[in-house]
Design a protein around this nucleic acid. Structure first.
Length: 579
DNA sequence: GCCGTTTTCGGCCCGACTGTTTTCAGTCG
């Protein structure tokens, strides 16, 4: 069984144990084990073969045995028995907001409710409010939560959330009572999708800020409103929390609510080991009396990290992976920023499925201050995207050469093509034609389904190995569309090795719905010597701006400017392309 | 289920808000 599938099994075991009312620390061991496995750098098969899996801190005897059994046989009796003992509908019921494992267990045992549908019926019949610990309010809240669950996707694309968040942040900062305001949470960590928005405000008087927030024109429902926290749901379904803290506690609150949860747990454990207790309210001496204890006075996140012997960790890196160990040893480098970008290579025009002409795209790139722009329209197999025929590509190349030799072109254009990787791994255009280009972007668009992981990986690797005179880049590696469809399964480590071995750059597709290759794989790729190229996959002149979403994801992979091809200037890029 | 520079047993991160309760359990982040 593949590692990612084992991770999913461990996570499910944790949820199932939760539903059975098991020891919470046992549950945590399983979910922590899943995370550890997910972040494992070394090959799982190799670790098992060398009997070294137990060396990973957090994986004990029981987990090592279970992971090994899953990896070697694809099955786990413990898991199968556990799963059989819990009705499948109970898992889905956990997605209802405000409804956790304890309540699910109660309605199941008392009323036999085992699905969202039967829960709705039980609420409507007034049976739920009769249970001890439940009341009329719980019942109406449940009905509304079920309705919301069906109506809205629970997560949103980072890019879409930004459009909502920034105007509110500006509004908060303009309020008289507000000293400092930030957006925290997964939005601040630049995660590819965001669940809820978290606003943190430093102010002495919270009342007016809460009232302003709850009264925003787009608020459809006020879920909770207290002295320090207000939760609302906007009419588009997005939920947002506002927390107001005294200015002296702002840095602690900002750090806490930026998370991630795993990062916070590690920070607190580190604090405890150094004789402190860390929370959103401060950094306190561990054994101090509740009533009289005083926090260290720290007014920035930098100060909090420093107090615990760490270099500053940018929000993007706080995922509870290896950032604490890293920040203890090293100063975190200057991460890539949108302003470092000088061009991009994967862009479409009206020749295929783009909305703007070659010339309009070029002028838009110049307006962004870029030095160069690569044009890579679809190839003929992508008929649904009006892919170019061979003679059309030849014409486009001629037009690009003409642009470059015209008087003072505002940007240099590179001639490329987004060439389909066909089902057998061959390319959609003959090598003689591709050799007239400056580069090619190799992508899978056709025959995406019905191939297993190994076959798809072999297919892509064959394309990467195709001998060509021009440079190759691998486009959107997994083909995923966030919140819409999973990518086709591929063996990422093999793809990375093949890209490194054949001098192929890998694309970080910056389209907010793709962000593919996923940031979690990039350290490995860069350490293997793969060149990263961040591409907007623009289908219009305004689409070039999407590149920023890719840069934000690159930051999550701790990428520095020199690790990204399109931070280089025109001369350096020409040299890389062998021109 | 995991872990140990006081430990192989007894701990395991912290706090706000809601609803159903008279002191707290459950959920969330």
């Amino acid at each position: 069984m593949e590692k990612s599938e084992i991770v999913a099994v461990l996570e499910e075991i944790a949820v199932l144990l939760d539903l059975k009312g098991e020891n919470p620390f046992k549950i945590r061991a399983y979910s922590a084990g899943a995370r550890l496995l997910e972040d494992l750098e070394d090959d799982l098969g190799k670790l098992i073969a060398e009997d070294r899996l137990g060396e990973v801190k957090g994986l004990g005897k029981a987990l090592v045995e279970k992971i090994t059994e899953l990896h070697e046989t694809g099955r786990l009796e413990y898991y199968e028995k556990l799963k059989a003992s819990v009705p499948p509908g109970l898992l889905r019921m956990l997605e209802i907001s405000g409804f956790g494992p304890k309540k699910v267990k109660k309605v199941y045992e008392a009323l036999g409710v085992d699905s969202i549908e039967s829960l709705r019926a039980a609420c409507e019949a007034g049976k739920v409010s009769e249970l001890p610990g439940f009341g009329a309010k719980t019942e109406t809240n449940l009905l509304r939560a079920i309705e919301n669950l069906e109506k809205y996707n629970r997560r949103h694309l980072w890019w879409d959330v930004r459009a909502v968040a920034l105007p509110i942040l500006d509004g908060l900062r303009e309020l008289g009572a507000v000293e400092r305001a930030e957006v925290a949470g997964s939005f601040r960590r630049n995660l590819e999708t965001v669940g809820d928005l978290d606003f943190i405000v430093g102010a002495d008087d919270s009342g007016p800020v809460m009232d302003w927030f709850a009264g925003l024109p787009d608020v459809a429902e006020v879920i909770a409103k207290g002295e320090t926290k207000t939760s609302v749901r906007f009419s588009n379904g997005m939920q947002a929390d506002l927390r107001v803290v005294p200015p002296a506690q702002f840095a602690f609150a900002l750090h806490h609510f930026t998370g991630s949860k795993d990062h916070n747990v590690q920070m607190r454990q580190r604090a405890l080991a150094q004789g402190y207790s860390l929370s959103e309210w401060g950094l306190f001496p561990k054994d101090a009396d509740e009533a009289t204890r005083k926090s260290r006075e720290l007014h920035s996140e930098e100060g909090i990290f420093e107090a615990l012997g760490l270099h500053f960790i940018p929000p993007e890196l706080r995922e509870g992976r290896d950032e604490l160990a890293y920040a203890e040893e090293n100063r975190v480098p200057r991460l890539i920023e949108p302003g470092d970008i000088r061009g991009a290579f994967h862009n479409h025009t009206t020749a295929s499925d783009g909305k703007d002409t070659l010339e309009d795209m070029a002028r838009a790139a110049a307006a962004l201050g870029w030095e160069y722009l690569g044009i890579a329209d679809h190839s003929k197999a992508s008929w649904q995207a009006r892919g170019l025929q061979e003679d059309q590509l030849r014409e486009q190349v001629a037009r690009i050469r003409e642009w470059n030799t015209s008087e003072n072109p505002p940007v240099h254009l590179f001639a490329g093509s987004e060439v389909d990787i066909l089902k057998d791994g061959s390319l959609d255009f003959p090598a003689e034609l591709l050799d007239t280009l400056d580069y090619v972007v190799l992508s899978v668009h056709v025959s995406m389904t019905g191939m297993d992981e190994k076959a798809m990986t072999d297919r892509i690797i064959r394309a990467l190995e195709t001998p060509l005179k021009c440079r190759k880049m691998l486009g959107h590696v997994t083909g995923r569309l966030l919140l819409r469809r999973e990518g086709y399964g591929v063996q990422i480590p093999r793809i990375i090795d093949a890209a490194a071995g054949n001098d192929v750059a890998i694309e970080l597709n910056a389209h907010p719905r793709r962000l593919d290759l996923d940031w979690r794989h990039w350290r490995r790729a860069l350490e293997k010597g793969v060149t990263c190229v961040i591409n907007p996959d623009a289908h219009s002149a305004t689409g070039l701006a999407l590149l920023e979403a890719g840069v934000r994801i690159a930051r999550k992979a701790r990428m520095e400017p020199h690790e990204v091809l399109n931070t280089r200037n025109l001369a350096e890029v020409r040299a890389w392309l062998g021109l």
